[in-house]
Design a protein around this nucleic acid. Structure first.
Lengths: 189, 189
DNA sequence: ATCGCTTTTTGTCAAATGGCAAATGATTTC
DNA sequence: GAAATCATTTGCCATTTGACAAAAAGCGAT
């Protein structure tokens, strides 16, 4: 919980009373490897924060291939805000890649926080904007560079993830085949 | 101006008085082909809205190659919000690809709108979030697909842009060489 | 330790893409 | 309208990556 509060306070100030309120609304949730936090075709109904473990967002492209869109590691929010806010069906799965420990807020509690804490909406907006900008910044280099450089960038961006997730997930994140990634790893050593 | 107001009203309601206030703050700006709206290394000081023409955001990668990050066509906002909001140096150029007609707001006027119009901040947040989500959505497929499919996606996303901008810009947007794009075009016909 | 299953690595070959340079086409300038 | 300049296309060959299949390695259950 301390981690979550620290994370939030990066984006704005809250007094102790407000922090307590947020803490009271939070629930712990354990997800085992491969379990879904939210699913494509369903409406996302909770906001999560990763305390331990790695999750990923993935979808199936028009050829039926499973594509990992990005990874979410410790101390990051995990939520499909488009689905959560607008109550529309999500187009992606959020899945635990390792056993995970999350803090979650139900939609109802989240709304209550928005209505109760002055400035909470501003903080949330900042968090979302930053996360989205980060996604854009991480995606862009993947288009231009060759496969090896993409993998090196991946290692920079997700230094703690590479050894905890299957090669196939990383390969689809990078837009290359598993064999290519395996060869790249061999060359780098 | 009508276009801008319509654009804004998609994201929230405003009364006539508020609309008039926004209109009064707006200035027209003509940019000629190749002129910059904002530059890397400088702080972005205005918010723009494209009335006519096409602009692009570009940067130079570590090999010194010029990369087009995306195009901004008519009836879209054009601003580096990270630079504009946080007053930090921008990392990219915003350039007119064709002669352009923009509506612009100075930072000062924009701030005044934020302070004067109740709910304006919410509208702005929605606009930004949507734009960012769109960028993520447009970037992601570029990673997975092969060059021909990327170009076809590009044509879908920017149907009005393909014939108005140099091939080299599109090639760098797609992360392929000019010759490859030229060949792809030949194959598609 | 062994079996069965999944993941990763490796080999072979084919296809896609890049690098470079020349040719062609388009546009601007005088 | 000719020359100069810039953008696009094409040819040739090298390199990268993909497709497919088989081998090797890792891992859990017994």
């Amino acid at each position: 919980m301390k981690n979550l509060i620290e994370y939030i306070l990066q984006f704005g100030n809250l007094n102790q009373q407000q922090i307590d309120l947020i803490s009271r609304k939070a629930t712990e949730l354990d997800l085992r490897k491969d379990e879904y936090f939210s699913e494509a075709g369903k409406i996302s109904r909770q906001v999560g924060f990763v305390l331990e473990g790695v999750t990923r967002v993935c979808y199936y492209n028009n050829k039926g291939e499973e594509i990992t869109k990005y990874f979410i590691e410790e101390n990051n929010l995990v939520v499909d805000f488009e689905s959560f806010n607008d109550e529309i069906c999500s187009s992606a799965y959020v899945q635990a890649v390792t056993d995970c420990k999350l803090i979650v807020f139900s939609k109802k509690d989240w709304q209550e926080l928005l209505n109760t804490i002055v400035g909470w909406d501003t903080i949330v907006h900042k968090i979302i904007s930053k996360a989205l900008m980060q996604k854009v910044a991480r995606r862009s280099p993947l288009v231009t560079e060759d496969a090896t450089e993409r993998y090196l960038k991946f290692l920079e961006i997700y230094p703690t993830v590479a050894n905890r997730v299957p090669l196939s997930y990383i390969a689809s994140y990078l837009g290359i085949t598993q064999s290519s990634l395996s060869r790249i790893r061999k060359n780098i050593r």
